[in-house]
Design a protein around this nucleic acid. Structure first.
Lengths: 351, 351
DNA sequence: TTGAAAGCGTTACCAA
DNA sequence: TTGGTAACGCTTTCAA
């Protein structure tokens, strides 16, 4: 039940290498080597040291280790947001890859705001990470400068196509937008609109939007109708935007959404207005969220290879730390076609 | 484009306090005080130091600071999983509260496995955090021992009712399970079952399960039918479990799910089998995920106060660090009633 | 195979 | 109001 009211607990912070050494009767760095290079000790001594380490519950102080060593065992990661879990799977895969080599991930959030991103980068840099990973390829110039000056490997994730600071692993978001529109056109929808959250500095979302426009132009159609907002993309936003959209453009029969969460609200609002999906209107999302296959109708969506991006980022960081050169990778994605764009035919998601 | 192929980048790691001091022509710790206690310097000197700090792009080395200082500016946080985003909002709120006081959050994952949780706690403790927060109230004895010996504030989140190591902020999961069942019974469902992921060491899930049984017993009904699995809770699992459940217990007309993701699959599978929700079967979820209000029928679910739990955890940690005593808080939750349990009447979620 | 000693970049304390 | 100096707990030479 804690240490009673009043004074907070006294950090005791465990045994030190010196205490273990004293206990065994050897020098401090013999113990250090027992941990980092056991084979350089005679087995007998090693055994005694191991016993002492265990008895005293020794936990190496990574802070001291980082300060003394050539580099820290930290990797800084900046994502736009964990909350809407767009990047949770990326971070999880990245962390798994790094943890296997004993690197700890430190997370920062940009909240889709360049100034806050710069703040997060600065804060993370204070911990002298061995490398950094961040979402996006276009950054505030302070961010690029700080990262460049830090002289550590930097991997930009999720997007490609801009000027990479060092390395990059991501998708071509313009191509994704094109594919969303082309899919709708191929299914016979003609009046395509873009609906969703479009924050000023979310370059990926803007690129997807541009991709949609490109595909329409290529098909000899006009500009897409737009219903966007700088608010966070959630179902309620989707509902409000589509209501506004249909008021202005009743002819719209194909909707490319900027996220699945928005698409959920779009489907609900269309249903409430008596517009049938996919017969009257086709809807395609982005992100392939967990619920998308369970909606009615099931939502067609673009599936980003989240785990692969996280895994590759970890690989590049580790390789880079071993002296390999920077890399820029584009990863493939696909469209999961489900009922929300199944006009004419019936595409059923597996039960 | 990085530093060319071959050698990795050379960590340069920014200017040091000593370099800034040399530049200004003052001693190292005058600069240190310029940062931590500006009012103890004469304004003129302060100005010159500020200029040098800025020119050299000085970023304080938190590693060195933590080693030298009385305590580190880190808080370790262990969650079961970020992936299914159950805890993403909790972590986000916690981080926001801590960041305001310049504490950095370090994340670890237990993957619902006591051994991995112990590993995560040990790894985090290596960074000598000023405090720790973790999900759950029942832990591997190694975890309790390590945490106890660390002598730092510890907040256990999400659950209450066990023996807290220090402080706790959570919900009564037995009561939640009871409420799920009571809600179903109140709506006229009589044959209540529990469906979902039930990992051996997910104490919260087991408690909710027990709560359901308690409510049935109190109503003079028998044990709930169970369809559970140790696999992660996702829609596919829900679909498989409900198929199996209905084969064994065709009389079931009320289903309490252990998570909303599982409930999505349950709804889909019921629909595929021609069972109407809510007319034939009532379904209640847990977690109130983003899509739940957009399903057809919209899913009734228990909504945990995620942001409040994160915020309160931050508050307790900060207070504890200032010398306040440990606290154990139970937070309130509620049931969002939607269409999936609206038998007889029509409850509509707002569009 | 082991030990001694010099940092790493701060903070904290005491003296000036 | 400022400066000197000793930690902090480890890693990394270099010497024995």
């Amino acid at each position: 039940m804690g240490q009673g009211a009043g004074g907070g607990p006294q950090p005791r912070g465990g045994a030190t290498l010196a205490q273990v050494a004293a206990r065994v009767g050897v020098s401090l760095n013999t113990v250090s080597r027992a941990i980092r290079a056991p084979h350089t000790l005679r087995p007998e001594l090693l055994g005694r040291i191991a016993a002492a380490l265990d008895e005293l519950n020794y936990v190496p102080n990574r802070i001291a280790g980082s300060l003394a060593g050539t580099r820290s065992a930290l990797v800084g990661v900046v994502v736009s947001s964990l909350f809407h879990s767009e990047f949770a799977a990326v971070v999880e895969a990245l962390q798994t890859g790094l943890l296997a080599r004993d690197f700890q991930v430190m997370l920062g959030h940009s909240h889709y705001d360049p100034a806050r991103e710069a703040g997060a980068v600065r804060a993370l840099l204070g911990w002298r990470p061995a490398a950094m990973a961040l979402v996006g390829i276009d950054h505030h110039r302070d961010v690029s400068r700080m990262l460049g000056e830090a002289g550590i490997p930097v991997v930009q994730m999720w997007d490609v196509g801009g000027e990479a600071i060092d390395s990059a692993v991501g998708m071509d978001h313009v191509a994704i937008g094109r594919a969303q529109a082309e899919h709708l056109l191929a299914r016979g929808y003609r009046h395509v609109a873009v609906v969703g959250s479009l924050r000023p500095h979310d370059a990926r979302a803007h690129k997807r939007c541009r991709g949609v426009a490109q595909a329409l132009a290529a098909a000899g159609l006009g500009e897409p109708a737009l219903a966007t907002s700088a608010e966070p993309g959630d179902p309620d936003l989707g509902g409000r935007l589509v209501a506004e959209l249909l008021a202005r453009h009743p002819e719209v029969d194909g909707i490319a959404c900027n996220s699945d969460a928005v698409a959920y609200g779009v489907l609900r609002a269309l249903r409430a207005r008596g517009r049938r999906v996919p017969d009257d209107v086709g809807v395609v999302g982005f992100g392939d969220a967990e619920a998308s296959a369970c909606l009615v109708p099931a939502l067609t969506s673009v599936r980003p290879p989240r785990a692969a991006i996280g895994r590759l980022t970890a690989e590049i960081i580790l390789a880079r730390l071993e002296g390999a050169g920077p890399r820029q990778l584009e990863v493939a994605w696909d469209i999961l076609v489900r009922d929300s764009t199944a006009r004419g035919s019936t595409v059923s998601a597996p039960i």
